[in-house]
Each structure stands twice: as structure tokens, then as C-alpha cells.
Write a protein that binds this DNA or RNA. Structure first.
Lengths: 215, 215
DNA sequence: TAGATTGTTAATCGATTAACAATC
DNA sequence: TAGATTGTTAATCGATTAACAATC
């Protein structure tokens, strides 16, 4: 069984990265059901992917398995957690305290390695309220908050009209990564990371499939 | 310029389908800025994709352009809207009226061809409340509601413990498509459509990139 | 007509799957 | 040791990009 120090290779394909959280989820479930070992073949059947793909994916990061045995569930779960960076806590803020921003504030993100330190909004009626113990602040205090708390990650739940400009400012104030829910493609320096959640587009692909199924 | 009757080919790759809503969004913005024509080359620069990909993608559905001219923005926008099925309104329900369910009920989905007819929850404190004019009903009335309103599409915003079983029942009651926000892979008959929005997994891929960037 | 740009075929690239030697 | 299953190389498949003849 390999050493537990993780070094993340620089050239992993996006397709592989997107699959890691799903492996992590299945391994977590196996762990909860007290399954201690699993072969790529059995996992492949549960996850409806090929065993080959599982082995290829995991071997991007190291040999976590053992010939003739398979994978130790607990160990593999922990290692993938490290690869995903879930072992360290990242502080983040939510910018835009509308329905979606508040719903996200209610999410339980600590197991994913994230902690929400504050919500921000322009609406004076929202300022001062508390969501799951997290306060909603005036957006005018955002720059200072980012500096004093050294925030690097922001959830962007602003309307599309304001999202782009605010994101640009936030980059100047030190934000390095956005979880973006606004239906725009943020144009930011290449070293800034953006993960988009475009809900309307997701729903449209469902619409497409419903439509094409009924032809 | 081709006929406006759309027939949707059966074998479009998922990669193409996922890009269609983004084309639709960009064309909508061009339309708002009163741009009446655009070439694949100029659109490719705005969208940061290759012109070749745009032409390949669109030609899966028909020849929407004109040599030497490019594409008519208004026309292409309308046609992609039809391909995506946005020209017809689909009734849907939201099952699970927690924070996320309510946030989604507040969304303005009509332009995407969807109308929310009701929310459903087990929590008696929520039942009877109204979100954006849509009532929250007791989940015990779900089966009858699906039948009387002939609902085919459901947004699933239940906790992961109850989501799978409820989805199975809903299929028996006539639901054909799920927009699933629960962190589970629904195991349903192959003719049932599922579009997953796995928020935690999305955030984990951002975490991965933050982590691997700081090595 | 000449210039521009599509639609489409061919070439390349990347990702998935199959196969099997290595090894626990 | 024999059996099982990994790690990894090779083969296949699919998706993207390039190129260009067709044509508005």
C-alpha cells in the first residue's frame, strides 16, 4: 500500500477530474455500509462505468490498489478526499443574498472543505439578517472583508447584469476562484478559476431530450 | 434560408447538446444588441470556441447559414429555441420545498419553456404557504396532483435519503423526466430522463483546481 | 463577377476500452 | 502456489479541428 503523501500531477484531463467526486461519493457510501474492500470490477458494476476506466482514472494519481485484492475502501476514500482538497478548509463568501444565495448558505459544505464566512447584498432589507448563523453584510463592505479575512473563494449568485463587473472588482480585491451561478461567462485573467453552474442551461438540455423523445 | 419545420435527428452526441444552450444564450444577447447577422468566425471569437465546431454543431440540425453571408441572428435564435423545445410550455412540479426547492420556485423559467404548477413537501409548516404565487402542497396529495394535471416533469429537491424511493413512486404515477438535485444516481427505467445537478460535486472540482494550483 | 463564408469531408487529437503481463 | 486483480500498454472509438470545394 503506497505512501499517503499526495502530489497532484499537473496534466489531468477535465474528464477525469469531473469523475473524481462521484468515485468519492460511492466510496463514502460503501464505507457507511462497512464494506472494507472493493475491486474495480464490482465498483464498475455499481457505478455503471467500465472497470478499465476506474483503474485508468485512479492511476493518474498513484497505485492505490493491490493486485489480487482490489482497493481498500477507507484508504481510497481518504486519498481521493486529499486529491480533491477536502482535507483542508477553505473560507468563502457568497455574493448575492437572494433566494439562491441564501439556499446555498443553508447548505452543509464543511464536509466538502468549505466554510461560508459571510453573505453580501445591496438590498438594505437583507443586510443584518442571519442565514444559518452567517450574517448578510452590505456589499459596500465587501472589499474590506475580503482583505481582513483573506478570502480567496467566492460564490457568485448575483443577477447577470451585475455579476461580471462585480467579479472583475473582486479579482482586484484578491479573489482567486469563483463558483459562478450567474448566466454569464466571466472574462477574467487566466489564473482565476471559475466553476460555472448554469441552471437554465441544464434545464434546457432536459427540455431538448423531452422534445426529441416525443417526436 | 431553410424551411422552419424542425426535425430532430436521433443520434446527436451529448457534447453537442450541452453546447446548444450556450449558443442560444449568445444569440439572445446579440439579438438584444440589435446584431442581425453573424459569421461562425466572429461568434467563435466571442464564445472562445472554434468556428469549425460551431458549423459542425449547427449542421447536425440543418443548414441555417448562407455562404458568403453567415447566419441570421434572429432566425438562428428561433431555430435553436425550437430544437431545445423552448417554444412549447411544459408543466412541472417541485418535490421538496426546502431552501433549494423554494429558490428554484422563484426562478423565472417561463422563457425556458417551463411552468411550475406546485411545490410538495412533508413538512406541515410549509404546506399552504405560497412561493411566487405557487402553493406548497402536502406530499400525500402528490399522486393525485400528477394524475389530474397530467404532470410529466419533476424537479427533485428532496434529501438524498428519500429521493430515490420517491422518484420510483413518481415514475409509477406518470413522471417521465427528472431535474434531479439530490446527490444520488436515480436508478429508473431507461425511458425515464434524468438531468442531474450535483452541486457538491461541482464545488469539489473547484476545490481540486484550487488545491492543484497551490502545489 | 469577386469575395466571403458556409457545409462537409478528411486529418488529428484525445478519451475510452480491451488486453495482458506483473504481482499480491 | 494458484487465483485474482491490479497497473499499464496497445487498440478502438468518438469528438474536435483543419481544409477546401460549393455557393451565395
Amino acid at each position: 500500500m503506497a505512501e499517503s503523501k499526495i502530489t497532484i500531477p499537473k496534466d489531468i484531463s477535465p474528464a477525469v477530474i469531473k469523475r473524481l467526486p462521484r468515485y468519492y461519493r460511492y466510496l463514502g457510501e460503501l464505507k457507511e455500509h462497512d464494506v472494507s474492500r472493493i475491486s474495480s470490477k464490482e465498483l464498475s458494476q455499481r457505478m455503471q462505468v467500465t472497470a478499465s476506466q476506474i483503474r485508468q482514472d485512479l492511476n493518474n494519481f498513484g497505485g492505490f490498489g493491490q493486485q489480487g485484492y482490489g482497493y481498500n475502501v477507507e484508504y481510497l476514500y481518504t486519498e481521493i478526499g486529499k486529491i480533491l482538497g477536502l482535507d483542508k478548509v477553505n473560507n468563502m463568501i457568497i455574493v448575492g443574498a437572494g433566494n439562491l444565495g441564501q439556499a446555498l448558505a443553508n447548505y452543509h459544505f464543511e464536509p466538502n472543505g468549505f466554510r461560508v464566512l459571510g453573505l453580501f447584498d445591496v438590498n438594505p432589507r437583507l443586510v443584518g439578517l442571519t442565514v444559518r448563523g452567517v450574517e448578510i453584510y452590505d456589499i459596500d463592505t465587501l472589499e474590506e472583508f475580503i482583505h481582513t479575512h483573506d478570502i480567496k473563494i467566492a460564490v457568485l449568485t448575483l443577477p447577470k447584469q451585475t455579476a461580471s463587473d462585480m467579479a472583475k472588482s473582486m479579482v482586484e480585491w484578491g479573489i482567486k476562484a469563483f463558483w459562478n451561478f450567474a448566466p454569464v461567462d466571466l472574462k477574467l485573467p487566466k489564473d482565476i478559476m471559475v466553476e460555472n453552474v448554469h441552471l437554465a442551461e441544464s434545464l434546457m438540455t432536459l427540455s431538448y431530450r423531452i422534445r426529441s423523445n416525443n417526436e
